[in-house]
């Protein structure tokens, strides 16, 4: 399995409000399960280097996470910042995150993510060799979509595996950047069994189209996949705005 979804959490940041961005990136990774409970985050200097920010900015960002109860910092040889497990808290943080983004922003993110993924899938179908397609199929067959956390990690990994087959370094970089910015939110709907099964089925359609060198079908399947993921996201936004709970089932 590729480390895409996870590595994306630590990808470079844009300029404004960097400590908040550090906190937001890590918060998204934690509340949506890409970073697991009990996991040790990279060291402060390592985070500074990877986010491309000063050490003090990282410390400030981690301070925000500590305040929010998402990480705890332990001292000593086996010390560091560790992800704290607390599902109830995480749900309220996701709700807050959804409230902070306008519906139009969420749906535009999904449009852009979908456009990039469709281009990636199309190129992968043109360029993958028989061996590449076989490896991708093997990768997906071994990927677990049984739990929300495993499905998120593997869905993120799948996006990256397909991007690699496009043979385009730019598309791979953009995929990593978009996953960092938007991946955990886009994959919010994978809490639901049926959504996980749907996403995996669309993934298999993409693999079949890539193996058969059918770029138009690969593009269509990628579009359907991202549209499918955007529906529960926007439904969750609507529920949160109505003052309801995040966990209520998606109404048809």
């Amino acid at each position: 399995m590729g480390p895409g979804a996870r590595e994306a959490v630590f990808a470079q940041l844009a300029d404004a409000g960097r400590a908040e961005q550090v906190a937001q990136r890590l918060t998204d990774g934690i509340v949506l399960g890409v970073l697991g409970a009990g996991e040790r985050l990279p060291s402060e200097p390592e985070l500074a280097r990877r986010f491309g920010v000063a050490l003090i900015t990282v410390r400030e960002g981690l301070g925000i996470l500590r305040e929010a109860g998402l990480v705890e910092t332990r001292r000593g040889r086996e010390g560091g910042s560790f992800v704290v497990a607390d599902d109830a808290d995480h749900r309220s943080l996701i709700s807050a995150r959804l409230r902070g983004l306008a519906q139009v922003e969420l749906s535009d993110m999904a449009v852009y993510f979908g456009a990039i993924l469709a281009g990636i899938a199309e190129r992968a179908a043109e360029r993958a060799s028989a061996g590449d397609a076989e490896r991708l199929a093997g990768w997906l067959a071994a990927a677990d979509f049984g739990t929300a956390a495993s499905a998120r990690t593997n869905q993120g990994g799948f996006f990256l595996e397909v991007a690699v087959l496009s043979q385009s370094a730019r598309l791979v970089r953009e995929q990593i950047r978009l996953q960092a910015e938007f991946g955990p939110l886009l994959l919010l709907g994978l809490d639901d069994d049926e959504q996980r099964a749907d996403a995996a089925a669309h993934d298999r359609r993409i693999v079949r189209a890539v193996a058969a060198h059918r770029p138009a079908e690969a593009r269509e399947a990628a579009g359907d996949l991202v549209r499918g993921l955007s529906v529960p996201l926007l439904a969750a936004k609507a529920r949160v705005e109505r003052g309801g709970a995040l966990d209520e089932p998606v109404s048809a």
Binding site: P3, E7, Q12, P42, I176
Partner: peptide, 21 residues
């Protein structure tokens, strides 16, 4: 301008401590 590892002017050791790797 590496999107995963940042920009570096010195060589870096590949860090494999994260779970993804």
């Amino acid at each position: 301008a590496n999107p995963v590892l940042g920009s570096t002017t010195e060589p870096t050791r590949l860090d494999l401590t994260t779970r993804g790797y």
